[in-house]
């Protein structure tokens, strides 16, 4: 049996979980096993129907008075219990902060190896995986020696697809755990801070600046162009390290991963740290004085030149074009 760990926010199904369920369905089909899912919390009953539509035969719902808010260790206890009871061959989680966290706890509880951030899983003995390293800048083929195979799936490896109608029967159970397993529990999320524009992760246009921008003040023309194009500001790690812009604007392996329609990289050399965050831009334009900069290898178009001179000209031309 393939068991998928489903994440939900008080009954609201997580898109990445549906992707994992879709991938789990393919795995289950390849090994001829049923597909089950685990949902933690009484709210989970309400998502069983949607999971059935995605091919889940049995939805295990862990119900316990202590399980109203997210508690990673308790979630892993519930997963361990279901995996043991059902004899799961694969336990699949989303490669999200929560998915990877619960899976790692499960690995620690069961003393089994964990392969996080996979893009390909081939069950067997050993299970073969292809997983992302360096934020996706490198791919690793690896053998995972353990049963069940504990794996997580890189977000957006697969498109969530219903088309697998199964019964989605609800099997409620009360997981066994101690008070100590609830010591680390999320206090209900504080509201997101008021923000004026679109979030970086969802932005369609991003004007991003690096070392070449030179100073906090140097971002003024980037902001002007962002406003003209309905975009938002991004930056590289050098920029946040220098305190020119807040870390919330950092694009990269240890910042935000973005996938805009247009990414304009101004004065950014293209270290792998940065590329790991912007490789999924549909169109990338580079403005840089160095025609040999590494970022040229990831971009669609480039202008060779000083951003202090090039950006004002682009802003002027854009204004003219918009005035029509």
């Amino acid at each position: 049996m393939v068991l998928v760990l489903v994440d939900h926010d008080h009954g609201q199904l997580d898109e990445l979980s549906l992707q994992a369920v879709t991938y789990g369905r393919e795995l289950a089909a390849s090994t001829g096993e049923p597909l089950d899912a685990l949902v933690v919390g009484a709210d989970g009953r309400s998502v069983a129907g949607a999971l059935g539509e995605h091919g889940v035969t049995t939805v295990h719902v862990a119900v316990h008075e202590g399980l109203t808010d997210y508690a990673p260790l308790a979630w892993a206890r519930a997963a361990s219990e279901v995996a043991t009871r059902t004899g799961a061959s694969v336990v699949l989680a989303t490669g999200s902060p929560r998915g990877n966290e619960v899976l790692a706890h499960l690995g620690a509880l069961t003393d089994l190896p964990v392969a996080a951030d996979c893009v390909e899983v081939t069950p067997g003995s050993p299970t073969k995986v292809v997983r992302a390293r360096w934020g996706g800048s490198l791919m690793e083929e690896a053998n995972l020696h353990g049963s069940p195979a504990l794996v997580s799936l890189v977000p957006h490896t697969i498109v969530a697809d219903p088309g697998g109608s199964a019964s989605g029967d609800v099997a409620e159970f009360t997981p066994t755990f101690s008070d100590a397993d609830l010591l680390v529990i999320a206090k209900p999320a504080a509201a997101a801070e008021e923000s004026s524009g679109v979030s970086l992760a969802d932005a369609k246009v991003i004007i991003s600046g690096g070392r070449g921008v030179g100073s906090a003040e140097g971002f003024a023309p980037l902001e002007e162009l962002a406003e003209l194009l309905g975009g938002t500001i991004g930056c590289s790690r050098v920029v946040t390290g220098n305190g020119w812009r807040p870390h919330t604007e950092q694009v990269g392996q240890t910042g935000t991963k973005v996938a805009p329609d247009l990414y304009i990289a101004c004065g950014i050399s293209g270290a792998t740290q940065h590329i790991a965050g912007c490789r999924n831009a549909k169109t990338m334009i580079v403005i840089n004085t160095d025609p040999e900069a590494a970022i040229m290898g990831y971009a669609d178009y480039a202008i060779i030149g000083d951003i202090g001179k090039v950006l004002p000209a682009i802003i002027e031309e854009t204004r003219k074009a918009k005035a029509g």
């Binding site: 290898g297 971009a299 031309e317």
Partner: peptide, 26 residues
């Protein structure tokens, strides 16, 4: 968890088309 191979993803063989130099390229 035994690494058997590392590879650079194949999608990375782009090369930017240079549209020009300086403000004239705007």
């Amino acid at each position: 968890l035994v690494k058997t191979r590392l590879e650079v993803p194949v999608t990375e063989s782009k090369q930017a088309q240079v549209l020009g130099s300086g403000p004239e390229a705007a």
